[in-house]
Nucleic acid binder design. Structure first.
Lengths: 213, 213
DNA sequence: AGATGAACTCGGGGAATTCCTAGGTGCCGA
DNA sequence: TCGGCACCTAGGAATTCCCCGAGTTCATCT
C-alpha cells in the first residue's frame, strides 16, 4: 500500500520542520506551503489526499483557502491545525468544508490518528474541544445558512489583504486584477458594512478574524 | 563532551513534539513544560543550560517567566521562540534577560544555531527582525525603565484619531490645524514606527492601547 | 545673547485612493 | 432559452493622501 499524500500549510517554518518529522514515517508529505494562496496554486499539481492547514496565515487565511480548495478539489480532506480553540473558528472551519480540527496543543499522536480517521470519510475533532459543537453543527439542518457571511469570497480576500497592510496596487498585483477592481471591492465592502475609513475596515477585519492585531 | 541541557516551554504540545525531534540530536532535552509557572518550578531541579520559551503561555507568560527565572538562575541562557514579531515584544523580551529571539517562522537551522550562539555568551536574533532594535536596546543606558511610548503628545493624539476612523480632514477640524499638518504628523509616526499603510498604523494603535478593536 | 534642537505648523506637486458609472460573466429559475 | 441577479471587472473625474521642503515657536545649553 502506498502512503497517503499530505500537504502542510503553515507559515511557521520551525513548526513545519517539526511536523515533517512527525509525519514522515506514516505519510508522504508531498509539499509544504506558507500561505493559503500558495496552497491553492500548488494543490492541483501535488494531488494530495489530505491537507493540514493553519487558520492564521498571511495573504490568504486558512478558512478562505479551505473554502476555495474544497470547491476546486472536493475529494481532498482538510484538517485544521491551529491555536484557535474559539468555537467561532471551529464552526467556520467545518462550514468551509473541513473534516478535522486539531489544536497545536493537541497530542502528537492525534495528528496521525486524525489523518487516518478523515481518510476513512469520518470527522475528527480534538477532545480538547467540546464535541457538542460539531454535533450541533452537523445535525443542524443543512440549511443553517442563517448568515452566509455578509461578504463574497473576493471581498473577503481583499479585506484580508487591506487589513494586512498592503496597498491597493500591491493587492492588485497579488490578485492579478486591475487596481480599479480592487478599489471597487474595497468600496463595496465599506458600503455594505457602513465603514468609512481604512482604519475602521482594519478594525472590522481584526474583530472578525481576517487578520491578527 | 556532554550535550547542553535544554528545557522547552510551550503550551502547544504538537509543536513541542516536533521541536523534540529537531533538538534531540544536538542537545539533551531534559524537560518540557506547558507554562511559565511550571518552568519556574522545574528549572532549579533540571539545571538547564538553555531555556526555549514561547511568550504566549497560560498561567504565567514567557516574558514574566523569563524575568523571574533570570533572577533565580542568572547563568541560564534564555531564548524566545514565538510568533510575535512586534518590536514591543522583542524589546520586552531582551529587557527580561533573554539572550536570543526567534520566530516560529524562522528556519529550523536557526534553532540549533541560536542555542550554540547564546551558549558562547553572545546574543542571537533572527534576521527576520531588524537588528537595529537590539543594538539600540543594549547600547542604550541600562536604566531605561519603561519608555513612555516613542511618540510626542501631538503624534499620539493624531494616531488615536486616525485609528478611530477619522479622515485627515476631520482630524484637522478636530484639532483646529491644517490638513497638511495632520498629514505631516501621520507621516512622522509612520516613519518612526516603520509602518507604511493606514492598516498597519491602526493595528499598532490597537496593540498599544490607543484605541479598542 | 546666541546657538541648538525638538516639536509643531504649512505649501506644492505628484501619487494613491475614492466616487460614480458601466460592461461582462456565470448561474438559476420562469 | 431567456431574463434576472449576483458577482467580478474596469475607466474617468474628483478627492485625498503621501513626499519633498521650509518657517515658527520655545525650552535648553554654552
Amino acid at each position: 500500500m502506498t502512503k497517503p499524500r499530505v500537504i502542510l500549510a503553515d507559515d511557521h517554518t520551525l513548526v513545519v520542520e517539526g511536523f515533517r518529522k512527525l509525519l514522515e514515517e506514516e505519510f508522504d508529505l508531498v509539499g509544504t506551503v506558507e500561505d493559503g494562496r500558495a496552497l491553492l496554486k500548488t494543490a492541483p499539481t501535488l494531488q494530495p489526499d489530505v491537507v493540514l492547514l493553519d487558520i492564521a496565515m498571511p495573504s490568504l487565511n486558512g478558512i478562505e483557502a479551505a473554502r476555495q480548495l474544497k470547491k476546486m478539489m472536493p475529494e481532498v480532506k482538510i484538517i485544521f491545525v491551529t491555536m484557535h480553540a474559539d468555537p467561532a473558528y471551529v464552526t467556520e472551519g467545518f462550514r468551509a468544508g473541513a473534516s478535522g480540527y486539531l489544536l497545536k496543543r493537541s497530542a502528537a499522536a492525534e495528528l496521525v490518528q486524525a489523518i487516518q480517521v478523515v481518510l476513512k470519510g469520518q470527522h475528527y475533532v480534538t477532545p480538547l474541544i467540546t464535541m457538542d459543537l460539531v454535533r450541533a453543527l452537523l445535525e443542524d439542518s443543512p440549511e443553517h445558512q442563517s448568515k452566509p457571511a455578509p461578504l463574497t469570497p473576493r471581498q473577503r480576500e481583499v479585506l484580508q489583504l487591506v487589513a494586512e497592510g498592503q496597498s491597493l496596487k500591491e493587492i492588485a498585483n497579488t490578485l492579478k486584477i486591475s487596481v480599479k477592481t480592487v478599489e471597487f471591492h474595497k468600496a463595496q465592502i465599506m458600503e455594505q458594512l457602513d465603514l468609512h475609513t481604512t482604519a475602521e475596515l482594519t478594525k472590522y477585519a481584526i474583530a472578525h478574524g481576517f487578520t491578527s492585531p
